[in-house]
Simulated scan of single mutants.
Amino acid sequence: MKATEKYRRVFGSMSHLKESMPWTMGLSNIVEFLVWEPQRILGVSKKQYVRQIIEWATAPELKDKEVEEIESIVSKKLNHKMSESEQLETYSKQTMGICSAREAVRRITFFSEEYLNKELDIFLSLCSDNYLDQFYGQFMRFEQGASWSTHGNSGIFEASTELKAMYMDNLAYNHQSNLLVANELKFNGRKNPDQLLKYCLMYEHLLEKGFIDKGAKFLLLFIGGSALESNKQCLVDRELALCHKRPKKYQYLLRQELLDIVDCLEVASITWQSLIEFNNCYLAENSLCQVEQKLLQGFNQSLQSKSFMHLSR
């Protein structure tokens, strides 16, 4: 049985992006993220961690020691390593090596793009349809007033779609308006050199598998520390030039079917600071329930605490 089949058997699956997932799935996605990337907790890879413990435990000077004594010595060495790597300032640079639980939480909370992805997953899944209408309405025209469903890069998404060619961050889908929005997060970095074409590949795959409807409009929205170049054709031309330079590697991105999708693709960007400002305007201009007020205010507070809001100044 394939891994995807095992996953679907245990956790279920979906057959179309119009299906809404519970916001609590965002919590299980965080668990998945930490389980599959234990270096986020350990400070080093699991292999490096195990090897270090073995090296300490098999040191020549411990050859004739009792297990309890070896355990005590290894524990002291481990605590010393964790103490060495721990930083006591919120935005201190990350050090290498095994880290304590407190240091792991600091790194993930303030420096991790993947963790921010999970925060956005939960945020968008709890946002009202009106909020998403107004937010995405800044970037393209579509029929408003319908329902939205959002999907993070979860195990259920991967196992259901079996999309292997690329990893997306978050998708928002409006079935009635037949609109797909791909939210691509950048902690404070740049667009990947083949990212537009890769997202068109994802669109093609979702369409072939029946997860979106034929003719769905497609918006690729970059959210990052700085605004993206606004000329889509220039972005596409640079990606195509890269592919033509390395045709063996990128031949699958040069198919005419993908280029047809590129022609219909809308590309936009917004900075994290502008997103915070949009949220503040939305709070001021709309009569919101207390839950949505707290949702927007809390997400703004989290964004304002990230390292890119402080170290880039």
Rank of each mutant, 00 (worst) to 15 (best):
V67A: 07
V67N: 06
E68T: 13
E68R: 15
E68G: 10
E68A: 12
E68Q: 12
I70D: 10
I70E: 05
E71P: 12
E71D: 14
V74E: 07
V74L: 02
V74G: 10
V74N: 12
V74D: 04
S75Y: 05
S75T: 15
K76R: 15
K76L: 06
K77A: 05
K77Q: 07
K77I: 00
L78I: 02
N79H: 11
N79C: 03
N79V: 03
H80V: 08
H80G: 01
H80S: 03
K81R: 10
K81L: 04
K81W: 00
K81F: 01
M82N: 09
M82P: 02
M82W: 05
S83I: 09
E84Q: 11
E84D: 12
E84L: 06
S85K: 03
S85T: 11
E86L: 07
E86F: 05
E86N: 07
E86S: 11
Q87V: 09
Q87D: 01
Q87T: 11
L88G: 00
L88F: 09
L88W: 10
L88D: 10
L88V: 09
E89A: 11
E89T: 05
T90L: 15
Y91M: 08
Y91K: 02
Y91H: 12
Y91D: 02
S92K: 01
S92I: 00
S92V: 00
S92N: 06
S92T: 01
K93F: 12
K93M: 07
Q94N: 15
Q94S: 13
T95W: 03
T95M: 12
T95K: 13
T95D: 13
T95Y: 00
M96L: 03
M96H: 05
M96V: 10
M96W: 00
G97V: 14
G97I: 06
G97E: 08
G97Y: 08
G97D: 01
I98A: 10
I98N: 03
I98V: 15
I98D: 06
C99Q: 10
C99F: 01
S100D: 13
S100K: 12
S100L: 07
S100H: 14
S100E: 09
A101D: 03
R102H: 11
R102D: 04
R102A: 08
E103G: 11
E103N: 14
A104E: 08
A104G: 12
A104P: 09
V105E: 14
V105T: 14
V105A: 15
V105I: 15
V105R: 14
V105N: 09
R106L: 03
R106E: 01
R106V: 00
R107V: 01
R107N: 10
R107Q: 09
I108T: 15
I108V: 15
I108G: 05
T109K: 15
T109R: 07
F110N: 10
F110Y: 15
F111I: 04
F111M: 11
F111H: 15
F111Y: 14
F111D: 07
S112R: 00
S112M: 04
S112H: 04
E113P: 04
E113N: 15
E114D: 14
E114I: 10
E114P: 08
E114R: 13
E114F: 04
Y115T: 02
Y115C: 07
Y115W: 14
Y115I: 07
Y115D: 02
L116C: 09
L116W: 05
L116A: 13
L116K: 01
L116R: 10
N117Y: 00
N117C: 04
N117I: 03
N117L: 04
K118N: 04
K118Q: 05
K118S: 01
K118F: 08
E119C: 04
